[in-house]
Amino acid sequence: MKTLTLKIDGKEIEAKEDMTILEAAEKLGIQIPTLCHHKKLEPYGACRICSVEIETRGKSRIVAACCYPVKNNLNVTTRSTQIDKIRKTILELAAVTAGEDAMGEMRKLASEYNADLSHLRSKTPIEPTRCILCGLCVRRCIEATWDSVIGFIGRGTKRQIALYPEKASICTICDYCHDVCPTGKITSTGPDPPFPQIDDVLAGRE
């Protein structure tokens, strides 16, 4: 496999050609925030919090670090006024459904980027679901069971995560979905009987 050279925040690094910016940055010890990413899962590119600036051939644009493959001579900037502004807005947008009291990674990032989680929520007062639809639980579930017990239903703002009743019997209460949830929505899946509880959790009745 070819090795490429690129610059992240001014530091030069060699990376393998199948790496993403996120992975290359990690090698350098540079932290790029993520909400929908998990090392063991395929990149998904939905939360966009990992947005970074790249410059190639004199043109700069913003891309999602979790999906963007490294390229030779790429110049990446992971923090800038622009990037911070985007991350702040994304967190405030995510809080519309996650709620201003979102826990986990959301809470941590909100204080780092000075995001006021009630700012945009106050404009769109809807019942918070404590979910940002990052899909981590869904994707983790597919890999754990090789058949998804939970999945997305609905489109746009009607999108939500649901337990597929016909597949409920496959659930092994592996707790993986709980482990990956970045907002603390999935508090626990067990112990038993497990299925109604997952459903309750996802439906916000827990």
């Binding site: 590119g45 939905a46 939360c47 966009r48 919090i49 807005t89 994304i90 947008l93 995510a94 519309v96 459904t97 945009l120 940002i132 639809l133 899909g135 609905g154 489109r155 746009g156 703002t157 009607k158 999108r159």
Partner: peptide, 9 residues
Amino acid sequence: CGKCIPCRE
């Protein structure tokens, strides 16, 4: 489609 936060929210 509702997949990414910037567009959906």
